[in-house]
């Protein structure tokens, strides 16, 4: 602080007591201000550094669920990039995944165990387990997705990605 006093006019003596009180109050106020603004910056930044639960941007893949939970001849709907998708375990045990958006009017298709087909309730459109249209109004087949199984044995996740 010697530099400050160096610039101070030589005439100015030691400050009056009231002036001194004001100075300490102002310094305290400034300290509070600096600390709280620093906190207002450090807090969001430190929260930003903590990775979110989903880990990374779900651009091209999503975890549909646990492989063990998917019994043969059953299907499971899951969100994939903001749209529903379906993963199916065939009676033979293969895993297949498709976009679950019906190509007719965007209704969500479901797995029908009795015929082992994908079925849209809205207009009775049916697709085989290759995604092809079997009957009903859908003009195109369902987009097929790539299925991978990843993780510890017995605890594998079904990971679905765009081909």
């Amino acid at each position: 602080m010697s530099d400050v006093t160096r610039f101070a006019p030589s005439g100015s003596g030691s400050p009056a007591p009231s002036d001194f009180d004001r100075r300490t109050f102002l310094d305290a106020l400034l300290a509070v201000g600096f600390v709280s603004t620093a906190a207002a910056i450090v807090y969001p930044v430190s929260r930003f550094l903590v990775p979110p639960p989903s880990g990374e941007a779900a651009t091209a893949s999503a975890v549909a669920g646990k492989a063990a939970a998917l019994k043969p001849n059953s299907g499971l709907l899951f969100p994939f990039g903001g749209k529903p998708a379906i993963v199916v375990r065939t009676a033979e045990g293969d895993l297949r995944a498709f976009s679950a958006v019906c190509t007719h009017l965007d209704c969500t298709v479901q797995f029908k165990a009795d015929t082992s087909q994908l079925w849209c309730a809205c207009h009775n459109g049916t697709y085989d387990l290759g995604g092809n249209v079997v009957s009903g109004p859908p003009p195109r087949g369902l987009e097929q997705l790539v299925v991978n199984v990843r993780g510890e044995p017995g605890e594998e996740d079904v990971v679905v990605s765009r081909g």
């Binding site: 969001p44 929260r47 930003f48 979110p52 989903s54 990374e56 941007a57 779900a58 651009t59």
Partner: peptide, 13 residues
């Protein structure tokens, strides 16, 4: 998608 992720998923992103 990564910018969308920053904006929607990352805290204070």
């Amino acid at each position: 998608e990564s910018v969308q992720f920053i904006v929607t998923q990352v805290q204070f992103g």
